[in-house]
Design a protein around this nucleic acid. Sequence first.
DNA 1: GTCTATAGGGTGATAGAC
DNA 2: GTCTATCACCCTATAGAC
Lengths: 216, 216
Amino acid sequence: MVTRGDARREQILYAAMVVFADHGYHRASLAGIAEHVGISQAGLLHHFPTKPRLLTAVLEARDRLDREWLAELDPDGRTGPRLLVNLLRLVDRNRRLGGLVQIYTALAGESVTDDHPARAWFTDRYGRVTASVEAGLLAGADALRPDVDCALLAREVVAVMDGLQLQWLLRPDEVDMVAAFRDYATRLIRSTALDPEPLVALLASAVPVPLPAHAG
Amino acid sequence: MVTRGDARREQILYAAMVVFADHGYHRASLAGIAEHVGISQAGLLHHFPTKPRLLTAVLEARDRLDREWLAELDPDGRTGPRLLVNLLRLVDRNRRLGGLVQIYTALAGESVTDDHPARAWFTDRYGRVTASVEAGLLAGADALRPDVDCALLAREVVAVMDGLQLQWLLRPDEVDMVAAFRDYATRLIRSTALDPEPLVALLASAVPVPLPAHAG
DNA sequence: GTCTATAGGGTGATAGAC
DNA sequence: GTCTATCACCCTATAGAC
């Protein structure tokens, strides 16, 4: 539950999300974030005492958002190859959200450096995300060919989503992540599911309007 | 050709590669790089007048290294699905190189932010890399099923390599990128090549000693 | 809860001696 | 080519008034 007194905090969190996405963590300044909110830098520090703690709060807020999206995307707890249909919808959602997704790519890349304050969080998050995808695959494993390695496959699926996102952020108008992921997921289903064609059809119609590859 | 007078420059380039990889671009300091070389910060600036120009030089040096590796990996200009065997070798090489690969992930993530000095370079590089993979696939397209979209597939392959690398950098001892990429490439060949099994066998023996997934 | 003022640290780049 | 010294800047965080 969110009390009324947290309104300013949420303003700051949102502004910090935007500024971290635009400049990364180390280049973002507290003064810049405070300016977005319309307060002074010292005023900001009243709500979040240090910069790393602001970052932590931002990442936790993103976590909550992610959980809401996943719950909304996957109300029936769909498993096995059908999971890919939900992930395709997630890719499409990320595309429409634009800059707010950038924070992951910008911070994840930055975080691989030695003692980055977000490193533990990302290490953790990848563990949870891949484990969750793996669990989804395992739960529907009876619809998959028996030689599928769900652990390796989970890492692969997450890797494809991240890698496409990086290419898309660098060239949004030339890279169609939805088309690329649909192509990937279709081939993946055909090579791992026991009864692929119904799922392939679902995938083809999962995201309402497939965009042309080079839309202006 | 490299003249003897460039020795110091190369020392600096190497040190910069290491420090950028460890800390990213913005957190790396010229003084820190200079210390690795054993000279002063002002001494460094005699060879590279500004920090962005040092970064550019580092990226260009990595480019040259990459080209040498690719030439060595692919002496016969192998194309089509066989390209994947060479890429698996590249993944293995990256694993063994450790920190020197990190510079790509660290800088690529950082570069998606608005006006990062490496952004244009990465945008360019992804264009070249995906185009080169696509060209390789197209050149061997007669060994592929006719419905394969080489452009989308090229982006996908690059995405898998990048995404796995990020996961591996965050948890080097838990993520086996070679195994994951081999698994991916095997499935990909089976679902796209007209005569997959010889290539699958090649893939299975391509990297001498497959590591156990959770080696200590 | 928000402000101004400032301490205290680090940075990229320049000037000029050797 | 390399150094020391220094400038000018930006940053996080604190102190204390309102």
